[in-house]
């Protein structure tokens, strides 16, 4: 249960070797297990789903996955009506751009 909060440590500690085993991820995905998350990919794909499993390379297993189609002209536009349900998927950690939790999140209509 070691936590790396390097930013809060005083600057004199800089001489110390960077703490923490190299294999340990900076994010603990266990906290998101069985919750809904949103995953963005390198290349632009966007999905949401319920996090069911993961490994240290950030490969993920998502259930009830929904993929959102991108607007080919403007990648910031997501067509909510074009969402495609794809069920249980494995997500490659090497393609993962960002991950965030959707717990309590609301969509704001702009």
């Amino acid at each position: 249960m070691s936590e790396a909060r390097q930013s809060q440590q005083p600057r004199q500690e800089q001489k110390k070797k960077f703490e923490g085993p190299k294999r340990e991820s900076i994010i603990n995905l266990a906290q998101y297990k069985d919750t809904e998350v949103r995953v963005k990919f390198i290349g632009g794909r966007l999905v949401t789903g319920i996090l069911k499993g993961y490994d240290e390379l950030m490969n993920l297993v998502l259930d009830e996955t929904v993929e959102y189609a991108r607007d080919p002209e403007d990648e910031t536009i997501i067509h909510k009506d074009q969402a495609k349900k794809i069920g249980l998927v494995v997500i490659r950690g090497t393609a993962l751009l960002s991950l965030c939790s959707l717990e309590g999140a609301e969509i704001i209509n702009t």
Binding site: G43, V47, I86, G87, V89, V90, I91, R92, T94, A95
Partner: peptide, 13 residues
């Protein structure tokens, strides 16, 4: 090749 793969869907769709 694995370096272009983003997702795998078992059962396929």
């Amino acid at each position: 090749t694995g370096n272009n793969i983003a997702m795998l869907i078992p059962g396929g769709k």
